[in-house]
Amino acid sequence: MGSCSGDPRLCWATWLLRCASLLLCACSTVANSSGAHVFLNRTQGGCVLFHVAREAGAELKEITWGFGPDSAYTVILRVHSGADSPTWVSLRDKYEHRVHVPNMTSLRIDNLNPGDSGQYRARISLTGGKEFNMNFHLTVYAPVPLPQIRVTSSSITPGWCNVTLECRAQGAMEDLKVTWESKGLPEELEQRGTPGPAPNLWVLDLSLPLSQPNPRLTCVLSNLLDQKTATTDLGAICVPADSHAVTGPSLLVHVLRAVIAVLFFLGAGLCLWKTRDRKQKMEPVRGAGLHEEHRDHDGGIHWAELSR
């Protein structure tokens, strides 16, 4: 962490180490004025690199890194010139496995969480008794959740579709901003978005002309570092009245076809029943004729015998 001491190989190794630190944590903040305040925004799970530039002609003696506001400032560790490792003072259980000191003037924190948000201070001590502070204000944002659009009410009036939409998401929403984006809607369209009763609820009241084909509406949730969207097709919600006139005759045709089929089967069944009944009536008549014929025949025989 000290100087190269005139050895080119040592200088080259130190330069590579600094470049590797910047690549591992793709965020670098440089400040070189006394009492400067730097504001940083990072995403949960990412990293941050605090860096203090050397003043020309000044030799660093020690840098003390701390956390918290002025009323509750706590020293985390100290970095001494020429030392191989920093000296921990407090909060070691919170930062030990996540805090790294790539060089004398830098401090990196990995695997950030919302609890890491706050003010970090570097107190720089130079040879000759000169000191100054650098303040870094860090805000760690949670990832933006995926929103969902839900239709709470809809109605059709002559020429218009009135619909109320809600954009919902799970998780902490106090740091998120919601916006509505439309595609295929006229600019003069009356629409109004207001925060709902809960921090994760936004409501949009919309009046849509039925003559507008296939409009789409998108809810965008965002913070300073990320955004997520959800899109819905209003054409499936606002069905014009003409579409009902189209479906009416088709339904009547299906009903008529069903009635005709039922009548056909009833007629066929009635014909079969009548045919069977007719056959049953004809069989006794034929049997009776045969009986009469047999009886006449017998009668003729007896008459012949009697005549003899």
Rank of each mutant, 00 (worst) to 15 (best):
P240Q: 10
C47D: 05
S211N: 11
E187V: 03
G159R: 06
S243P: 01
S250H: 14
W273D: 08
M134V: 08
S154N: 10
T74E: 15
Q44G: 02
L60D: 03
K177V: 02
L251C: 12
D116T: 07
P209V: 02
E305H: 10
T229P: 00
H97A: 12
L16P: 03
L266C: 11
C161L: 09
A20L: 14
R150F: 04
E62T: 15
D205W: 04
H244C: 09
H254W: 10
H100P: 00
S125H: 14
R150S: 07
V75P: 09
I260Q: 04
M1E: 12
R108P: 00
R92W: 07
I76Y: 12
V101Q: 13
G118Y: 05
T231S: 07
F39M: 02
D175F: 00
T164R: 10
I76G: 13
E55T: 11
K228H: 00
L17T: 09
D296M: 03
A258T: 14
A304I: 01
H37E: 13
L263T: 06
H244V: 13
R92A: 14
S5D: 05
L107Y: 06
Q170Y: 02
A83D: 15
D277Y: 06
E293I: 00
L165H: 06
W273N: 10
L16E: 13
V99I: 11
G35P: 04
G269D: 03
P8D: 11
Q170L: 02
I260D: 08
H80V: 06
C27M: 06
P114G: 02
V79P: 00
S3E: 12
H302Q: 13
P240C: 13
D233P: 02
Q191K: 05
N214Q: 11
D242S: 15
G35Q: 08
N41H: 08
V38P: 01
L23C: 12
E305M: 11
R308F: 08
D70L: 12
P197D: 08
N41W: 03
A304W: 03
D93E: 15
T164W: 01
V101E: 10
A268W: 02
Y141F: 14
P249G: 14
L146N: 05
W180Y: 01
S125K: 10
G184F: 08
S155H: 03
L107F: 12
V52I: 10
L306A: 15
I63W: 08
N162L: 13
T229F: 00
G115H: 09
C11L: 09
K94W: 09
S3Y: 07
G68N: 05
G128S: 06
P209F: 02
I76H: 11
L138G: 04
K274T: 07
T247E: 15
Y141P: 04
P249Y: 08
P240W: 05
L210E: 07
S182L: 05
G82A: 09
V246I: 14
R78S: 14
L107C: 14
H51R: 15
I237D: 08
D175V: 00
H100A: 07
G299V: 01
L91V: 03
Y120W: 07
R42C: 06
V178T: 01
G35C: 08
G82N: 07
R9P: 01
R92S: 14
A26W: 09
L252E: 15
A169P: 00
L60T: 06
V144G: 01
P147W: 00
L60E: 03
